[in-house]
C-alpha cells in the first residue's frame, strides 16, 4: 500500500510532529507510514485523511500484489 502523506502534509504545511499530535500517535509512526514501513489501522487512516482534508483513497493507494 502506497500513500501520499508526505505530499499532502507539505501542501498543508504540517510537520510530522504536528500531524502526529493531531491524529494522536507518536512522530515515529508518521515516519514509518511515510516510508511505507507500516500499514495503518482503518481508524488511523481515517484520522489522517480527515486532517489532510482528503478522501481516504486519495491518501492511501492500495496496490494488489
Amino acid at each position: 500500500m502506497n500513500n501520499r502523506i508526505k505530499e499532502l502534509r507539505a501542501r498543508y504545511d504540517l510537520t510530522q510532529e504536528e500531524l502526529a499530535k493531531r491524529v494522536g500517535v507518536r512522530r515515529e509512526t508518521i515516519v514509518f507510514l511515510e516510508k511505507g514501513k507500516y500499514n495503518p489501522s482503518l481508524k488511523l487512516a481515517y484520522d489522517i485523511s480527515r486532517v489532510l482534508q482528503s478522501k481516504i483513497e486519495e491518501v492511501f493507494v492500495f496496490e494488489p500484489t
Binding site: A20, G24, V25, R26, R27, T29
Partner: peptide, 13 residues
Amino acid sequence: SVRRGEPAEDELS
C-alpha cells in the same frame, strides 16, 4: 513522547 504531547504508546509501538 509524553513531554512532546504525544501518547507514550500508540498502535505501532
